[in-house]
């Protein structure tokens, strides 16, 4: 097995040697932490368990955020889903339901796994748990999906920041969606190249997304953006699974995202001064908060 010295090598092994993203992530982690494979997978399993617990809590819906604005949306979606009222197809409907539910748990001071951030924590588990359920996948396959997502995340972290304050929401919801797209391809049996392409396609689709939280809270529009980020990830994965390639390779898309993020005015980087946060209704809501 290779020992990686850089994310450049990691991408090389995936592209040229056909290494699955999950294997690449495992090798990377062995190198970083010196830990054994079984230990690494066990820790991932524990994080998956926290994701499952967060999903359950959000779907039950007896939660309220300190602002009083968020809570109960996951339950509404789950009811509608069970009553067959949703139009987006079984996997997508389940993914957006779980993604929103977990983002609500986060807003309500519940326990979540940042993936890669707390503000975007619903997207990856939404996609993972929906695929597990709808395609009857094993837990090991779900863990492979988490590792594939982590491989993309490691590449992004080496080149960019995941901070909305630094680069906007594209670096949070965009990053999570790209990671989830790669996870989806690997879990669905696509090739490593398709997984990287799915990540690139997802990130391109959210290029420029601004961070504009109403009142500065991780609530509006963040919670619903988690649901949308999950659907976006599945769509990007479908495009790649069908054999369409990303014309622009992942690392160039990430570099472009960094440049776009840096050129965003500070009003669109988590300061709650622009975008949705600056709408008259948003200001009214914010003024009631303090």
């Amino acid at each position: 097995m290779p020992s990686f010295k850089s994310t450049h090598e990691l991408l090389y092994m995936i592209r040229e040697k056909g290494l699955a993203l999950s294997e690449a992530a495992q090798e990377w982690e062995k190198e970083v932490s010196g830990r054994e494979l079984t230990e690494i997978r066990q820790e991932m399993r524990e994080r998956l368990l926290v994701m499952r617990q967060a999903a359950r809590k959000g779907l039950e819906g007896n939660i309220k955020s300190p602002s009083g604005l968020i809570g109960g949306g996951g339950r509404l979606l789950e009811q509608a889903r069970k009553e067959n009222k949703l139009v987006s197809g079984a996997t997508t409907a389940r993914a957006i339901t779980i993604a929103l539910a977990i983002a609500e748990v986060n807003a309500c001071m519940g326990k979540i796994v940042a993936a890669p951030t707390a503000g975007s924590c619903g997207i990856l588990p939404g996609v993972l748990l929906a695929l597990e359920e709808e395609r009857k996948l094993s837990e090991e396959t779900v863990i492979d999906g988490m590792l594939a997502a982590a491989a993309v995340g490691v590449v992004m972290a080496s080149m960019a920041s995941f901070s909305g304050a630094a680069l906007g929401c594209q670096a949070e919801v965009g990053a999570a969606s790209a990671m989830a797209a790669a996870a989806t391809v690997e879990m669905a049996g696509g090739s490593p190249l398709q997984a990287l392409d799915a990540a690139a396609i997802a990130l391109k689709g959210l290029m420029g997304l601004v961070c504009d939280p109403v009142g500065g809270l991780v609530e509006i529009p963040c919670v619903k953006r988690n649901a949308l980020g999950a659907a976006h990830a599945l769509a990007a994965a479908d495009i790649a699974l069908a054999g369409l390639k990303s014309f622009i390779p992942l690392e160039e898309v990430i570099a472009a995202m960094v440049e776009v993020g840096k050129s965003l005015p500070s009003s669109l980087r988590e300061t709650a001064e622009g975008g949705i946060a600056a709408c008259p209704t948003a200001k009214k809501i914010a003024s009631r908060l303090t």
Binding site: R47, S65, M109, K111, V113, A115, V218
Partner: peptide, 9 residues
């Protein structure tokens, strides 16, 4: 990347 486990938000 997949972590930390934390209390939101």
């Amino acid at each position: 990347i997949i972590g930390p486990i934390m209390i939101g938000p």
